[in-house]
Amino acid sequence: MHQLKTGTLYIVPTPIGNLLDITYRGLEILKNVDLIVAENIQHTNILLQKFNITNHLVLMNKDNENQKSDNLIKKLQAGVSIALVSNAGTPVINDPGFILVKKCYFFNIKVIPLPGACAAITALSASGLANNRFCYEGFLPSKKTARCNLLLSLKNETRTIIFYESKYRILQSMEDIIDQIDKNRYMVIAREITKKWESIHRDKAHLMLKWLKEDKCRYKGELVIIIEGFKKILKHNVSKKVWDTFCLLRDVLSLKKSVTLTAKIHQVSKNNLYQYAIKKDSDNT
């Protein structure tokens, strides 16, 4: 472990459920910095006690962030090393800390981020949905009108979309996703990631809502919603002649073979035909 740099802010991710997910480097920094800035001192103490770490903690939440940031900047300028943590996951992502980090750059104070846990990325990696391009939207608005407006604005978003949601609003939000985006859009709900009751369920939106309503336990705890991006299908690219050939072949062959043979017979795009066939199947479900 290299000696900590004085007057430096370290951004230290903490576990999102399983305390063993903390990194060795994260533990070393929490042990050796001059003080730890925490969103909830009692919550952070659970982690510190688990690894026998004793250090000075300072509370900084969304209510006192402006005032605390000014005080912390003075300490950093005086050479104090500080670790910033949130209740769980990577600090600043939907958690307090943005103002402090921004002021650090204004006062030329070094900021060193550590890699670590993040519920959105962890869930995305196991979603089975495209993950090369995605957008993170944080928590959905609590008010229905604002929530619906946001969802409608994302209807044609081609990237995979990630939200956080509360167990208290998930059913209402699912209804709005169906109404404003698409009842047949594939999505994933990841619950209690890394914890004992972790579950990851993937289905079309309208089937997902039905699945949730069958058992309240399916939406208890921390929830990540991941929605498949919009896929534009140019229907006029598949002529009636091509589609008729495909349907005849599909009666006796697999989807893949039917697409391959139809594309070869008519010299059309195999990928476009495949996407069109998938879309037609979704519409009829």
Results as ranks from 00 to 15, higher is better:
residue 1 M to Q: 08
residue 5 K to W: 01
residue 11 I to C: 03
residue 12 V to G: 03
residue 13 P to G: 07
residue 15 P to Q: 05
residue 15 P to R: 02
residue 18 N to F: 03
residue 19 L to Q: 04
residue 19 L to Y: 01
residue 24 Y to M: 13
residue 27 L to N: 03
residue 29 I to C: 02
residue 36 I to A: 02
residue 36 I to S: 01
residue 42 Q to H: 12
residue 43 H to C: 02
residue 48 L to I: 06
residue 48 L to Y: 06
residue 49 Q to N: 15
residue 51 F to T: 02
residue 52 N to H: 13
residue 52 N to V: 02
residue 53 I to K: 06
residue 55 N to L: 02
residue 56 H to P: 00
residue 58 V to R: 00
residue 60 M to W: 05
residue 61 N to C: 01
residue 62 K to T: 10
residue 64 N to E: 08
residue 65 E to Y: 06
residue 66 N to C: 04
residue 69 S to W: 00
residue 72 L to Q: 06
residue 77 Q to N: 14
residue 77 Q to L: 15
residue 81 S to Y: 10
residue 81 S to C: 09
residue 89 G to T: 07
residue 90 T to F: 10
residue 92 V to T: 15
residue 92 V to W: 08
residue 96 P to R: 05
residue 98 F to G: 13
residue 104 C to A: 08
residue 106 F to T: 14
residue 108 N to I: 00
residue 110 K to Q: 15
residue 111 V to W: 07
residue 111 V to S: 06
residue 115 P to T: 12
residue 115 P to Q: 10
residue 117 A to I: 07
residue 117 A to M: 09
residue 118 C to Y: 05
residue 119 A to M: 03
residue 125 S to Y: 09
residue 133 R to W: 05
residue 133 R to N: 14
residue 137 E to F: 15
residue 142 S to R: 15
residue 145 T to A: 13
residue 146 A to N: 14
residue 147 R to L: 11
residue 148 C to R: 15
residue 149 N to M: 10
residue 150 L to Y: 06
residue 151 L to Q: 07
residue 155 K to L: 06
residue 156 N to I: 06
residue 157 E to G: 00
residue 159 R to Y: 02
residue 160 T to W: 07
residue 160 T to H: 08
residue 162 I to Y: 04
residue 163 F to K: 10
residue 166 S to T: 14
residue 169 R to N: 09
residue 175 E to H: 13
residue 188 V to S: 11
residue 195 K to Y: 10
residue 201 H to M: 11
residue 203 D to W: 03
residue 204 K to S: 15
residue 209 L to F: 10
residue 211 W to P: 00
residue 212 L to I: 08
residue 213 K to S: 12
residue 215 D to K: 10
residue 217 C to K: 12
residue 219 Y to D: 01
residue 221 G to R: 01
residue 221 G to W: 00
residue 230 F to I: 04
residue 231 K to M: 10
residue 233 I to S: 05
residue 239 S to P: 09
residue 239 S to D: 08
residue 243 W to T: 00
residue 246 F to W: 04
residue 257 K to C: 07
residue 257 K to S: 14
residue 257 K to D: 15
residue 263 A to M: 07
residue 271 N to G: 09
residue 272 N to D: 15
residue 277 A to Y: 00
residue 278 I to W: 02
residue 278 I to K: 11
residue 280 K to Q: 14
residue 284 N to Q: 13
